[in-house]
Amino acid sequence: MVKKGTLKQILLITDGCSNKGEDPAATAALAYEQGIVVNVIGILDDDQTEQPEGLQEVEDIALSGGGVSQLVYKATLSQTVQTVTKQAMTQTLQGFVNLELKQILGSNETMDDLAPEKRGEIMEVVEDLGETCDLEVLVLIDTSASMNDKLPTVKEALIDLSISLNSRIGRNRFCIYSFPGKRKDIEKVYDWSPKLDSVSTVFPKLSSGGITPTGPAIREAMYQFSKKSLRRSLRKNDEQDIEEA
């Protein structure tokens, strides 16, 4: 039987390209190696078309971070934050189940290669895990100048995310960091806590600066997860397996 574990996610919310420090896709890959999935939400300005070139980075970071990415306009941010988080949970758990399957079936079969009937039974297990597993989400918010008018929406979306995730059976822990920090790469906004409802009081503290050191920020974020459990969290899934499907 699959042991219950804690899923770890970084949720990066940004509206543009990194311009300082190492490649964020590389640090995301590093985090993924440590069992932390990196999800990215790129917020578009209302007059932007859906595929601005600068935001290609959003997809790249999530790809190497084993997570989910999505470009979105302000209006639908709340729902997207939740879908992305839940989708990434399912994806991680599915990857885990796929690994188990491979061990049992001894082949390269993944869930998607099974007949629909079998798939249904396995999906029940995945759903069950998603409902009961513990989850740690580190929210990493880009606070460079252009994000200023988006921050109130981000705040609402995060409160909403906490409502949704706390309706699950499993436990949650959230924390919020912003980047760039005053002296460091990231700045703690909100310490690890099971809920985000008191976030309203801390949000105005966010200050906007000019540079966007996304790569170093992800690296720092990685160290904010409880260290002893880093490598012992749910085994990371193998992106290759899923791609083959």
Binding site: A62, V68, S69, T80, T83, V84, Q87, Q91, I242
Partner: peptide, 8 residues
């Protein structure tokens, strides 16, 4: 294929 939520 699974990495994006809404591949058109």
């Amino acid at each position: 294929m699974m990495n994006k939520i809404s591949r058109k």
